[in-house]
Design a protein around this nucleic acid. Structure first.
Length: 583
RNA sequence: GCGCUCGUAGCUCAAUGGAUAGAGCAUCGGCCUUCUAAGCCGGUGGUUGCAGGUUCGACCCCUGCCGGGCGCACCA
């Protein structure tokens, strides 16, 4: 719908350029959405369906008063009244556009014809985007925080795809490092215990029940193979360094669980990228030597952080390999090798992002938990150092999820082993509720997830509210058949009520909502839109009898209702939520 | 102390630099003999944390305070 107005403005700009009032490049910049002025939706209804601030923004450049320029632009657009667009000058120099009722109604057959494609555009054509998300350590089950990142990343990927971008989804498996060793030790500890050779617990281990499950599975496969003689007589503590095969087994087990959890929420990845593969296949050396060639690495001593107590054993003052992150906006330079000579997590992450950068994407999106927020700058710095490009990476941080039940907070702690897993929550409330709910807030805001409310079938539950609107549409279809009413196309001109025209306007807003949600990486805009649309539909449904006696009216209202149902279904699909036909 | 982030109705939160800042919950009051009341309609409720600045125009951008969250050496 917006294209109608955009086309008009472009025509006006081109004509003013011919007349020498405005520079000629403006029209193209505007068409490409790179101009400073734009077509927007006025908040106030009396200001029309669309407005543009072009005259306000360009007045100085044109050496004219805003209202005078607005008049010139208005004349130049030569909006033909027959086109169904009326245009007026208002306020300090806005141009307001009013679509005729006839023009509005034309949207209905358009939506019905486009079907599942309505809402999709091609404005992102040419973009190749990689969305990396979840990337939870394979050291235990996913919790609800991971779930929020999973749902957010997947929705962002869907949004980009909807505006014509090429999108890939990727999961970075942190299957290296000390936490993995801890997992291995934890499994071995339980393994011995299960075999009847109790040992002292390792200094650091995961207490969760799932570790014992892994141990039992290991016994089932390998028997007592991983017990040494000294362990059998209980004289030795659990191995410091578990065998690779045991670690592999544990990682595979956990990753299988994680994949199953993601599958439960309909989340699928195009690629699973292993951190260990970087270590094994020289990826880290390659990335570091690349950085080194550019001169961004050096041997130096790190300044201790200010204003914070640092243990004396933490500060060794040794010379080490550092990356000049501070040259690219980070707060400090960052170490790349641990004291034992193995790469830091950051070094591996540099290598991973180097790999991604070399694959030719136009844009990288990483979805991280907010607790990793302090890490953003250094990765951005590394990417800029490696590619010479700023702004290739967009990091979306998701804030914590606060789980409540019956008004009480449900405490989660991985260390204490008392946490509610994502799967618990999905089993309890369903994937639709989890997905929708996790997208009801901007990702930067904390989120309360009320288990009882998410399950409830009430109007307080936004998921059901929206899904119910769709079910109502379908229910009307059923009623239409049951009563054997003639299903005529109807006369759309019979849709004259303000409620009907407003509903159409709202339907016309959908593609713009999708576009802005995608570019801003804010899926919650779609969620809000759907709640608004559902509210408008419920109101309409309550006030007007859809299955009217008059077949022309009935047909027209059914067309509007079907279009509404279609948009709700398309919107829910972008969030990965189902659109049930009955509830 | 530094960095990131958030401060908007009693609560939880929206609002691509636009015109009179919106929803839901809560609260108060209405609507079922009709297509699903799993719904709808109406009322109450605001100095957008504070102070400056940029702009024709600021919840939004910049600066400084105040307050909450997260992070801050070779943990990931």
């Amino acid at each position: 719908m917006r294209e109608i107005v955009i086309a008009l403005v472009i025509r006006g700009l081109e004509r003013l350029a011919q007349e020498g009032v405005l520079p000629p490049e403006l029209a193209r910049a505007f068409a490409e959405r790179s101009a400073e002025f734009k077509v927007e939706r006025p908040r106030e209804k009396t200001h029309g369906d669309f407005s543009t601030n072009a005259a306000l923004v360009l007045a100085r450049q044109a050496g004219m008063k805003p209202r005078d320029l607005a008049q010139r632009l208005l004349d130049a657009m030569a909006a033909d009244p027959a086109s169904g667009v009326r245009c007026t000058i208002a306020g300090p120099g806005f141009l307001n556009f009013y679509l005729s009722e006839e023009r509005l109604r034309q949207l209905i057959p358009q939506i019905l014809q486009l079907g599942s494609k309505y809402g999709q555009t091609q404005v992102g054509t040419g973009e190749r985007i990689l969305v990396e998300f979840v990337s939870a350590n394979p050291t235990g089950p996913m919790h609800v925080g991971h779930g929020r990142g999973a749902v957010t990343g997947d929705a962002i990927a869907r949004l980009f795809a909807a505006i014509g971008c090429q999108v890939e989804r990727e999961y970075y498996i942190n299957d290296a490092g000390t936490q993995i060793d801890v997992l291995g030790r934890s499994v071995l500890f339980r393994y011995r215990e299960c075999l009847g050779y109790p040992a002292s617990a390792p200094a650091d281990y995961y207490p969760g029940e799932y570790v014992t499950e892994i141990a039992r599975a290991l016994i089932e496969r390998d028997g007592e193979r991983w017990l040494s003689a000294s362990e059998r007589d209980g004289t030795r503590a659990t191995l410091e360094r578990p065998p690779e095969a045991v670690i592999d087994f544990a990682i595979d087990w956990v990753m299988q669980e994680i994949r199953a959890d993601l599958e439960l929420m309909q989340i699928r990845f195009d690629r699973w990228f292993s951190e260990r593969s970087l270590h094994r296949e020289g990826g880290i050396e390659r990335a570091l030597s690349h950085l080194s060639q550019q001169g961004w690495l050096y041997e130096g001593v790190l300044e201790p952080p200010k204003g914070r107590e640092v243990n004396s054993d933490e500060v060794d003052g040794r010379k080490q390999l550092l990356f000049r992150a501070s040259r690219f906006g980070d707060d400090a330079d960052r170490p790349l090798l641990k004291a034992d000579g193995t790469p830091t997590y950051f070094a591996a992450d540099i290598a991973y992002h180097f790999d991604k950068a070399q694959r030719g994407y136009t844009r990288l999106v990483d979805v991280w938990g907010a607790d990793h927020g302090g890490y953003v700058k250094r990765v951005e710095a590394a990417l800029e150092a490696m590619t010479g490009r700023k702004g290739l990476l967009d990091v979306v941080l998701t804030q914590m999820v606060n789980l409540t039940q019956g008004g009480k907070q449900v405490r989660m702690s991985k260390r204490a082993g008392t946490f509610v897993t994502l799967r618990d929550v999905v089993d309890e409330t369903g994937a639709d509720a989890v997905r929708f709910w996790f997208l009801t807030r901007s990702s930067g805001a904390g989120l309360d997830f009320d288990l009882d409310l998410a399950k409830s079938k009430s109007n307080d539950n936004p998921v059901f509210y929206v899904q119910y609107a769709h079910a109502r549409v379908c229910s009307l279809e059923v009623k239409l058949r049951e009563r054997e009413l003639e299903d005529v196309a109807g006369d759309l001109a019979r849709l004259t009520a303000p409620e009907e025209l407003d509903l159409i306007r709202l339907l016309g807003l959908f593609p713009e909502t999708v576009e802005s949600a995608a570019w801003s990486r804010e899926p919650h805009r779609v969620t809000y839109y759907l709640s608004d649309l559902a509210a408008a539909f419920h109101g309409y449904y309550n006030q007007f009898r859809i299955l009217d006696e008059d077949p022309q009216v009935r047909g027209a209202r059914m067309a509007l209702v079907r279009a509404t149902g279609r948009v709700i279904a398309n919107g829910l699909d972008l969030l990965g939520v189902s659109a049930p036909e009955s509830m």
